[in-house]
Design a protein around this nucleic acid. Sequence first.
DNA 1: TAGGTAATAT
DNA 2: TATATTACCT
Length: 381
Amino acid sequence: MYFFTEKMQSLKMGFPDYIQTLEEERRKIQVFSKELPLSLELVTQAIETCKQQLSGTTSEYNLNGHSECSEQTTSTEGPVLEEFIPIKKRASSSSPCCDEDDEQHSHKQRVSKENNNSDKRKSDWLRSVQLWNPDPPAEEDVSKIVCGVELKRSGSGGGAFQPLHKEEKSSKPSESLSKTPSSTPVVATSSSAVEPAEEKSLNEGQRKLRRCWSQDLHKRFLHALQQLGGADSATPKQIRELMNVDGLTNDEVKSHLQKYRLHTRRPIPMVHNSSDPQAAPFVLVGNIFVQSPEYAAVATSTASREVATVAAPARIYAPVATHPTPVSHPPDDSIKKPQFKKVKLFELSNSDDRANHSEGAVHSNSPTSSSSTHTSTSPGY
DNA sequence: TAGGTAATAT
DNA sequence: TATATTACCT
């Protein structure tokens, strides 16, 4: 008990105030009841003790009357809360993607559930602590979150693309900006009609948040690609327009396209060789070399599956020689057998993908199929 | 301004 | 190492 009185003296407050302060504190701790069960217990006990003491000494105070004021508590709380900041911050900043954001949201929800009664105030101080995103929309955000994991989990049924937590931006201007460190991904910009320039200004110099190319998004990308006649003929702008995704920028598309091209042009080891002695004549289907007439026949439909089984790394890229000169091969020796690239035809869920083989640039591949089978976070190429 | 590509960051 | 962003050049 001496501790309490001493503490009160140090805080220059009487029992009622002190109790009130403790209650405030308890409310705050309740938020972390799971993490700080003992602290909660201790504070509760302290309150009880003080109340007992108070009842023994004075009875004229109306405790409830004070419950609302939080000035002192906040002032005394300050330092303590500060200590939480870095911890949480770090946790959140560790992974830029939706994961932790999701976690945050879930945590938020959890908390809100547990402390419905004292929510208003809590939300305020919580904000000050930055454990939560400044903006309230908890449920919505959760549903919107889409980066890799989340998307996959939901089967990518949701929007094609969620511009990384962009939805949060709406309210961000004030606190999120100043508080969230550069690494904090939460800042994202709103998908809708928010241009990178604005993002930048808002993020003030921060690196743009990474866009997660969900499967669905990538599917759109591929679809656009195929509509445009392949990766080589398609331009970022065209792709973006075809994709019709809010918040998607040309740069992002361009980047993705670059990667896509990179992968699709990457020489593919011929895994087949070992098993197939038959150096069966390759047939050029569309722009793709297929191993045998049969393949040629099936190429457009089923071949993909067969081949897919041959070599199926987590990621499957369409090995299509994009500009590859079909017969007269370039002197490029880097590729073992440039002329005969065993093409893996994947039926991108879009059989139409092959539809425009006429153009023949990069088709044949359809990541989607692969992606569906392989549950890697990154879209298959 | 847009596209392509390399460098850089995460 | 893979992937996304940024910078630079055309």
